[in-house]
Design a protein around this nucleic acid. Structure first.
Lengths: 350, 350
DNA sequence: CATAGTACTTATAACGTTACAAATATCGGA
DNA sequence: TCCGATATTTGTAACGTTATAAGTACTATG
């Protein structure tokens, strides 16, 4: 108290306030200010209070660059956004979800775009190399995903949207695609459909397997023929799918039921069938996985099983935060349950 | 040369290489290494070459935190993503565009989500306060946009997607909504429509004015009645628009032409009209502004005027880079021309 | 009253980089 | 041979923060 320096007003009025400014005002040492702001128990409660009050008053905000340089922690989480995820607001919902999970913490969200045609490992390597984040979230995992291997080798915290098939555990959030596919088959059968086709993602993705399992399980159980198109997948352009649908719609054994794990594939198929004079509800049916209300507006009677992307984002954020806190596990592994609420069945069960 | 220190191998083999590592290997001073890496002409070409070769070899990457602390430059550009921009991949396209503009520079892209219902100034204040970026991009500008005022006051570089009506100039990229609306009216007239309705964004946005001007100009010129719905706007939920459309479709003076500056509004309207037994092409027509191929798949005969969002992002990035280089202007102001290519008219011009 | 402990505060150094001023070497010309 | 000019390199300090170790003052204990 007695050693309080004269409040050198010229120093702390001009530019951005730092801990030094607070130190000068309170007459404390910069170290004390730093520790007070960190809530160190070894600093007297009264001091802590005083410091944070002054900090508040003069509008002090910590310099993240300095913190980062000193501690090595970026306090940033990087979400890698895949260009294929454009589908009806997927990216935005995911971002919003993660951002919500991070709100209240001092972590920032950084979105790294993954360029179309680029190697998926690139953004991950880049982030690790340049230490641009403390944790990474990415999607579209593969059974033996290179990114997972890479990050695990370096003990770099991450969470994935989608599972892998490695022998070791890691944090993830996934959607129960197996159940989605299985229930979809049952629903289509309920509507009298027998030639049920499923649109699968490219087979190097893990969720290809899950969808496939669910579909095949139901198909076998019900004694149906499986119908998996070749040359067409969930990532195909709409015009491509449209062309394909238009063609097969005119064949004698054209599918009368579709399982579409994405909205756009359904739209393209419905359009292709329409060109061939076939209407959804009369000539064929479909169960669609969607994450927005858009589809329902286009076809209000469509059977739709929803996936809550925003929730997935929030879970991913939360799981990653936990992983960073306890880097050696246990790993949070969350599987989202499909929300199945079909419209009531009409009487046209022929 | 003679003063070369012995290559203290223990120092630069373990952890991440820094300029110090390079200095030790080359026998130069850290300062020289720093300036060589910056390409300073005052450093001998031979030295520059040698330094960058060693840097490459040992996999040196500059520590951004240290650079940032020292220079005050974050080398980050922040894109503020509005939740309303979810519409069919808007966000992703914009991100991709900006990212492309930034590729090759040492700027990073950081996406800051704007929460639904939050004050638009919040993310901007936050970025400036915490100095999280050197430049900001945001959209959905208002005529007297608070964010523009705020950033200009602080001479903080920014570019907007959309114009303002301030007396001073600033960098922006905008779409020619006036032309879009005007041309849409003409197109609908060409198709024999006379009761032409326009869906406008909330009237606090600048592009509300532009759309309105274009629409009104054409309406007056052609001697038509204007039809601007109340209670419904471009940001309304699809179910809301659907309800509205369903109701007016049954009125005697129901519009037979719609100008939809967004895909979802069209879908909701088409659905509402369909409930009332009215079909697009027969009972009404629409011109839709879209930025994806999705709509075309749903209705291949639809008149659609496209907006290239990815290009907008690229322009925004480029403009902002220029603004940061020359903070006092001249400001890049780009207006994107609508891409108008309608399907050939059928003969049903009654 | 000395001593150990407790409660709290502080000086010093360092993270990796760059701005600045200063130093050294090299060279042509007087 | 000496001088100034040019070319090139270097030492020092600083950006704002925090970890570490060391300090001070006060209290309790024997």
């Amino acid at each position: 108290m007695s050693t309080q320096k004269p409040p050198n007003s010229s120093t702390h009025s001009t530019s951005k306030p730092t801990q030094k400014t607070i130190a000068e005002i309170t007459g404390l040492a910069v170290t004390t200010v730093s520790r007070a702001l960190q809530g160190d128990e070894k600093i007297a409660q009264a001091t802590r209070l005083r410091v944070s009050k002054v900090a508040e008053e003069i509008g002090y905000v910590p310099d993240r660059a300095a913190q980062r340089l000193r501690t090595g922690k970026t306090k940033v989480i990087s979400l890698i956004l895949d260009p294929h995820n454009e589908i009806l607001g997927f990216g935005n919902s995911l971002i919003t979800g993660v951002a919500h999970a991070l709100a209240g913490t001092d972590y920032h969200l950084n979105v790294t775009p993954q360029f179309l045609g680029g190697d998926p490992i690139e953004p991950v390597e880049y982030i690790v190399r340049n230490k641009l984040a403390d944790g990474i979230i990415f999607s579209r995992t593969r059974p033996f995903d290179e990114r997972v291997r890479f990050l695990r080798e370096r003990s770099f915290p991450f969470t994935t949207h989608g599972r892998t098939e490695f022998g070791y555990q890691h944090s993830f959030v996934d959607y129960d695609n197996e159940k989605f596919a299985y229930e979809s088959v049952l629903r289509l059968m309920q509507k009298g459909r027998r030639r049920i086709c499923v649109i699968l993602p490219p087979n190097h993705f893990t969720f290809h397997q899950h969808l496939n399992y669910g579909y095949m399980r139901a198909i076998r159980q019900e004694g149906l023929q499986c119908y998996i198109p070749e040359g067409i997948n969930l990532d195909s352009d709409m015009p491509e799918i449209f062309e394909w649908a238009q063609t097969i719609a005119r064949t004698s054994d054209a599918p009368d039921g579709f399982i579409c794990p994405g909205e756009t594939s359904f739209l393209a198929i419905a359009n292709g069938y329409r060109q061939a004079g076939k209407e959804r509800g009369r000539d064929f049916d479909a169960v669609v996985k969607s994450s927005s209300q858009t589809l329902h507006q286009i076809d209000s009677q469509i059977d739709n099983i929803s996936e809550d992307i925003r929730q997935a984002g929030a879970l991913l954020g939360a799981n990653l935060l936990k992983t960073m806190l306890h880097p050696d596990g246990p790993f949070e592994q969350t599987i989202q349950d499909p929300d199945i609420t079909f419209p009531a069945l009409k009487s046209y069960q022929d």
